[in-house]
Design a protein around this nucleic acid. Structure first.
Length: 645
RNA sequence: GCCGAUAUAGCUCAGUUGGCCAGAGCAGCUGAUUUGUAAUCAGCCGGUCGGCGGUUCGAAUCCGUCUAUCGGCUCCA
């Protein structure tokens, strides 16, 4: 007998070899019907895989991430089966589930290819196969046998996979006529899969290494009900409407020009005002936190980055140097502001009493991103960092780091970013060539970040090998409308640049000491932040931030003078307002300004002129009543104050 | 940079198997209308059909190439 512990902590005894399916059935027939896989001591099992030890179990359904993973992984096998039936001779690499759906990496033989035109026939075939309710059958295979099988088949991919596995852990899964090396788990049978949509084709390097052969990656998604697929497709359409590239165009925030160059955003007046307002917001916060503004040029001598180590690492994949008439003189466009700030620090001697020193600058930097990598405002070649460098004593590091976290959290709270995640990026100790600086300093900085996050109670994930080459970092990530994750705020601890630039301060012991440096950018980049904010708000920016808070709509041209009078009065009280004095009907003006997402519309006609009032209409909601000019002005300014609290 | 798809007016899109001067709606301009809570009417303007080269009597349409965009991969100081 074995002991099974349920999620509610209750314990029951079963015969050894009982399956998740039987346990679920014992609870209710409905649960058995909905169950997709079962968690056994943290591992995910097929429903029919015997459980032979005492275990904590959890039954996973579609609603659970693990359930979806099982569902989509089985779907990947189903797709592979369909693809193999049309293109015999294809070699399969891996087919995992992803956030929404699954993919399979496939190597098509020379001269064979799949296109999106093939999707309908593959989907149809998959549905046919699904309806056969073929069972997914697990079998354990000896390593030698597995190797032999795939060597004979000439499948170098699977041979490579198996070589990386230990004997005794190798399993195959078979459904219908299709067998694949796989550790599972899988659904009971293909019949669970009711709705199928192949999404796209992409190239993907084998093992993620760009020196390797490129395989064809086919993305798809499946559902246990047709209705769920329809809903998903509607959701995708909705998400597209929030795309910052689309809204940016509609609201005239920014544009690009192929003549100016790829990835170099041009801010239009409305976007520029928004960006400026956002910068002023942070400037104000930074003053409270003791930052001091500095301004540095957009270029610097090449030597500057040779000292920092950036040139050795990124020089040849970057914008190339700017030459001057002087022999041998070379400048680089600055890819970051740190070296300039280090030089500012060095302009005079510092006492331990001066520290921490916090230099802040909205610095525009240029990085030559690969062309295929550019993406709207989220990945560009020229962007403004809300950068600052904090030079502090080692004993101040923690406190300073915490203060930076507070700034980031304050910003996220003010802008309603609730669903952010935080990631600690550490170096990969196995791959020391990628990093500069001593082990001791790395240990110190990594430890500092981990401790601080613990103290602040941040829920973090730790990624090994994701650190910057000069130090570990803490990143704040937010998802865009389509669920793609973007890094916004970043905080980095750096012992290396102070070393390289020989930064010093005089301690209380009258000896020279090396300061620690914190790089930080709460927004990350203004461009990316505005992109993500645009998608987050669907272009309905908060009142304090938006360029036009209200627009006055005269009923007819007869009321244009009154409208202008109102506008001037409101402007005196810092309300950002314009007049729509076009010769159009009121319905048309309302519609146009609704589409422009102006938060408030102020309608003025006969009644308003007589009563010296405004009819206020809220964007997306409709008429909210009559106010005097003063009342409206207070209304707006109170709301702005509330938002910025 | 790599794989795949796409490229028609400022924007969103039609354009059948190659065949008359390449179309529509919105935006813009002109005029009429003077309007009460999501589109008033009429007229006009606007395009080397992404660039270049080829096939053809004839190319937006077929082929090649370059560029850009989109979806991924790799990368992201």
């Amino acid at each position: 007998m074995i002991k099974i512990t349920f999620p509610d902590k209750s314990v029951k005894e079963f015969e050894s070899g009982i399956t998740g399916f039987e346990i679920a059935k014992g609870i209710s027939s409905r649960l058995a019907k909905e169950a997709l896989s079962v968690g056994v001591n943290g591992e995910i099992y097929d429903l029919l895989r015997p459980i032979t030890t005492n275990a904590k179990i959890a039954v996973y359904k579609w609603e659970d991430k693990q359930g979806k993973d099982t569902f989509w992984h089985s779907s990947a096998h189903l797709m592979a089966e369909a693809i193999e039936s049309f293109w015999p001779g294809v070699k399969l690499w891996v087919g995992p589930s992803v956030d929404s759906g699954f993919y399979y990496d496939v190597d098509f033989p020379e001269g064979m290819a799949i296109t999106e035109k093939d999707f309908p026939k593959i989907e149809k075939k998959m549905l046919e196969l699904a309806q056969k309710k073929n069972q997914y059958i697990r079998s354990e295979v000896a390593k030698e046998e597995a190797l032999k099988h795939y060597t004979e088949k000439g499948d170098e991919f699977k041979v490579d996979l198996i070589n990386g596995l230990e004997d005794g852990t190798i399993t195959f899964y078979t459904q219908g006529d299709f067998t694949d090396l796989c550790k599972g788990p899988h659904l009971l049978d293909t019949g669970y899969i009711k709705a199928i949509k192949l999404m796209s084709i992409a190239g993907a390097y084998w093992k993620g290494d760009e020196n390797n052969k490129q395989l064809t990656r086919v993305y798809g998604i499946t559902f246990p009900k047709k209705k769920l697929l329809d809903e998903y497709l509607v959701m995708l359409e909705e998400a597209k409407k929030r795309d910052h590239r689309k809204i940016g165009k509609e609201l005239e925030l920014f544009t690009f020009s192929s003549r100016v160059g790829l990835g170099l955003p041009l801010w239009l007046p409305k976007g520029a005002k928004l960006k400026e307002r956002l910068e002023n917001f942070l400037k104000k916060v930074q003053i409270e936190y003791g930052y001091e503004p500095v301004i540095t040029p957009h270029i610097g001598l090449k030597e500057l980055w040779e000292i920092s180590g950036h040139y050795a690492k990124y020089g040849k994949d970057s914008f190339q140097s700017i030459k001057t008439p002087a022999e041998g003189e070379e400048f680089l466009l600055k890819p970051m502001n740190c070296p300039h700030h280090c030089e500012i620090y060095k302009c005079k001697p510092h006492s331990y009493r001066d520290l921490p020193i916090r230099y802040a600058e909205f610095g525009t930097v240029y990085r030559y991103e690969q062309s295929g990598e550019l993406h709207g405002l989220t990945r560009v070649r020229g962007f403004t960092q809300d950068d600052a460098h904090i030079f502090c004593r080692p004993d101040q590091l923690k406190e300073e780091f915490i203060k930076v976290i507070d700034i980031v959290l304050y910003i996220f709270k003010t802008l309603d970013f609730e669903n952010f995640t935080t990631q600690i990026s550490l170096r990969d100790k196995e791959d020391k060539e990628k990093y500069i600086g001593s082990d001791e300093n790395w240990e110190k900085s990594e430890q500092a970040i981990i401790e601080v996050c613990e103290e602040k109670g941040l829920k973090t994930t730790v990624e090994i090998g994701e650190a910057a080459f000069y130090g570990p970092k803490l990143d704040f990530m937010v998802k865009d409308a389509l669920g793609r994750s973007w890094q916004l705020g970043t905080i980095q601890v750096d012992y290396n640049l102070p070393e390289r630039f020989e930064l010093e301060y005089t301690g209380s012991d009258n000896e020279k000491h090396r300061p620690v440096m914190i790089h930080r950018a709460p927004f990350g980049s203004m461009e990316r932040f505005i992109a993500v904010l645009t998608e987050h708000t669907a272009g309905k920016f908060p009142l304090w931030l938006t360029s036009e808070q209200a627009v006055i709509l005269p009923i007819s041209e007869r009321f244009n003078d009154y409208a202008k009078e109102v506008m001037n009065k409101l402007k005196l009280t810092d309300v950002r307002v314009t007049v729509d004095d076009r010769n159009e009907k009121i319905g048309k003006k309302i519609r146009d300004n609704e589409v422009k997402r102006i938060p408030f519309m102020l309608i003025v006609g006969e009644k308003e002129v007589e009563g010296n009032t405004l009819s206020v209409r809220k964007q997306g909601e409709g008429d909210i009543g009559t106010m005097t000019i003063d009342e409206f002005s207070n209304f707006i300014n109170n709301r702005v104050a509330e938002e910025l609290k």
